[in-house]
Amino acid sequence: MFEARLTEGSLLKKIIEAIKDLVQEANVDCSEEGLTMQAMDASHVSLCSLNMRHGGFDHYRCDRSISLGLNLANLGKILKCAGNDDVVTLKAEDEPDTLTLMFESPNQERISDFELKLMDIETEHLGIPNEEYKCTISMPSGEFQRIVRDLAVIGETCIITCTKEGVKFSVSGDLGNGNVTVRQSSAADGDEKDQVKIQMEEPVTLNFALRYLGFFTKATPLGSTVKLHMSPDVPIVVEYPIDGIGSISYFLAPKIDE
């Protein structure tokens, strides 16, 4: 028996919205520890990794580890039937063919349940080494979204350069070129969540497809902060912490000069 209850059901809506344009089908693994998901986009250039700790749920029970093969577009359709203030409960048997989703309005006046058919999905699981990155940038997620959206109008590839002073996002295209530099905030600058913080061992410059960075920014509603982890010649990690429950991280392979 698997049962997971989230008082803030809208969180689940936001999570699926953040994934479904990048990944069509995915296995969500449920264990005593919580929910995890790892899935690549169709062209195997990027990967999305979701982690929701059991402690972040209001009720969580998982007697036996199970894998839920989900069509994310279809799950999104069902979650659209939930109100934004609804409590959402997920339920599945030990060897499930379906996932049951129950939505309860805050005053308990409306209770609905839906069953989503599960699929057998063969996926390739990648082992991601737990490495220390040379640069970690923490910045407001809305700011990152804006930069990606703005630069995508000009070109396809973004050069991200991280130095101690700041992070430079550069693009060039047929109409011209552009740069946006965000500088490290000084300690006195305003709110923690509005700050740009850079931890750097050595400067890093990498090239990335703006199209994929754009997919990642669908996670912006999940939190005020995004973290970018970069090291030379390896995929970037774009991590959105989800307050109190876990995180969603996207890995994107760099574009390489040949």
Binding site: M40, S43, H44, V45, S46, L47, E124, H125, L126, G127, I128, P129, T157, N207, A209, V234, P235, F251, A253, P254, K255, I256, D257, E258
Partner: peptide, 14 residues
Amino acid sequence: VMTQSKLSAFFRSS
């Protein structure tokens, strides 16, 4: 020319 690399070039299948 910039070429888009794949994740398999960096991470192993497990």
